[in-house]
Design a protein around this nucleic acid. Structure first.
Lengths: 332, 332
DNA sequence: CTGCCCTGCGCAAAGGTTTGTGCAAACGTT
DNA sequence: AACGTTTGCACAAACCTTTGCGCAGGGCAG
């Protein structure tokens, strides 16, 4: 037979559906005997509540949406893993929507969130998003939103990021400590706040160290392939750089590729430092010195904040900046 | 005010809710004038149907579930990307459930699928899953299921995989063509069919090539770190191997790490070939020769099959094996 | 004995949408 | 003019669960 409903059980036991509901939910208004009778029959029939009806009645969906630019191999997997676990552990389910970095798709995804009555939204912005007005439909409905990683400065919602200036400072300082003064810099998509902040940090720290910033030693690239090409261009500049700073795993990989292509030895002939959650730096030998952040922690913290807002434990927008630390391996 | 409902519009226009519903759905039973009146007001109020109510009424959720062991950085991202796009393009939404490779969690996830009334399920099995009886609750309810990548042999549902023996044959044959006869083999989790098949293929192809299979040249490892250690052990065997075969990106990375640690040159002193979707092999110089499959294609095909079954265009279980090809770079 | 509370359950509404059926008016045919 | 068909909408049920309220019966105190 089809999936049994609460009314089926009611009919079989000569009870009212409401009693069945209460019995299954351990409501005190039902006697222990009937409760067990109901629960046993439910068990026997393999009853599972129709979540669709529950959702309608309770006016919530149990869904949390993750709006993300796209799945990539470096930062995302650990972030996702953390988010899914946190969300699952709290009885919600995770639905994933990609924007493919287009604003248009991001707008559509916001509408979908609204239609599905998701109870919270985690957002890593599309690079095309230069402002946040398209999130108004959600905020108007008081749907909690938490931005993470790829964010824009704002004060309406919680956010989770890494201290971009600080993380850059650690990296550049470390290179300077080792005596490097001509440092190549590889940066990501210049539309992103994260890129702009790290680029700003890079220049600022150089200045603090009395090292002049040279345009020719810095470049922007959106993936490993472009990063590799830009790295080659930078290495062709004279006087030659002695070290690379790469602001992400993609770019680190591109830089190493370029270095290996020119058959330079790391770290004897050229040093390299990156910002990473520590997986990609392990690919190489010597392993790459990096400033480590934790994608897992970013995801977990974002999810925790969101759940806090949903449960109304967090009232005001919190802007969390996670710590990072230097992991010194052999590449500098 | 709160989200407007169909009854709000009905009240404002002095019409019956059913008429509003039909007007919005372009049902012919409503006159063009009322239809436009309704649609204009709906637009103005920013009406969006309450998906929860629609779902209950239509007895479906618009959700497709992706059951996966865990997010990792190599194979999964491109698979996910493909699945999300395909699913989205067909008006469904994707909900992700991790099993963390435990059978228990996989069982729970099946129950969640049932409760949420998902309309289709894509499964990459947990390594603990040695049989498929825990999917019975879904199959009993005629919920379409498609298995991909990490599967078990079965005949009830569609599946999408790669021809494991063939892919191994290409790799080993290529090494043999280059004159290698002592070949180290790195394999993944031995609980997985995919591992067993590739291991079987490895031995079979060696036999066909009249190369004796040596236990000491083969090892199993579950991640890059273990892979690296196993690779070191294999390289310590005498007579020394001249080439590595790695059945996955994780293991390829581990092998390269071990090789670099021993300061051997690729390919002059040791060759390496892998099975990959082509991203990780780009990290290195020389780039790693590999047999290329496409995670994206696996995901897309699995999603397409699932949608076909949902739409009842596909009646009988299809078992698709995707093609792969040799990508010759510098590492052999 | 009266009035009150507590226990355990039923009744019905609510949540918002879709859809089978009914029905009145308008229109067409002979 | 009488009858049949079409058009355009209303009514109510259905999807399944939750929950405020009411009510009957039993127990207890005053």
């Amino acid at each position: 037979m089809n999936r049994p409903t609460i009314t089926d059980i009611a009919r079989l036991l000569q009870l009212n559906p409401s009693t069945i509901s209460r019995a299954l939910n351990n409501h005190p208004d039902v006697s222990p005997e009937t409760r067990t009778r109901v629960q046993e029959l439910a068990q026997e029939l393999g009853y599972a509540p129709n979540q669709l009806a529950v959702n309608l009645r309770k006016r919530h969906s149990g869904l949390i949406a993750l709006l993300v630019s796209e799945m990539n191999m470096f930062f995302n997997p650990s972030v996702f893993r953390a988010i899914e676990q946190e969300v699952y552990a709290n009885g919600y389910h995770l639905i994933i929507l990609q924007s493919n970095n287009t604003l248009n798709r991001e707008k559509q995804n916001v509408q979908i969130c609204r239609q599905l009555a998701v109870e919270g939204v985690l957002v890593s912005l599309a690079s095309e998003a230069q402002e946040l007005s398209h999130f108004a439909p959600l905020l108007d409905q008081k749907v909690p939103v938490v931005f993470f990683d790829r964010i824009l400065p704002q004060n309406h919602s919680c956010s989770v990021t890494i201290d971009d200036v600080e993380i850059t400072r650690l990296a550049v300082q470390h290179l300077a400590d080792k005596g490097h003064r001509r440092i190549g810099g590889l940066f990501g998509d210049p539309n992103l706040t994260i890129t702009r902040e790290r680029f700003r940090g890079f220049k600022q720290v150089l200045q603090e160290l009395d090292i002049p910033f040279e345009e020719k030693y810095a470049a922007f690239a959106e993936d490993s392939e472009q990063g590799s090409q830009q790295a080659l261009k930078i290495m062709a500049q004279q006087p030659a750089i002695t070290a690379f700073f790469a602001m992400s795993d993609e770019l680190m990989v591109g830089a190493v590729q370029a270095i290996e292509q020119k058959r330079l030895r790391i770290p004897e002939e050229i040093a390299i430092i990156g910002i990473s959650d520590g997986f990609a730096p392990e690919f190489y030998n010597p392993k790459i010195t990096h400033i480590r952040h934790s994608g897992y922690e970013v995801g977990a913290e974002a999810a925790r904040l969101l759940l806090g807002v949903i449960r109304e434990e967090i009232k005001d927008p919190l802007h969390v900046q996670l710590a990072c630390r230097l992991v010194e391996l052999g590449s500098v």
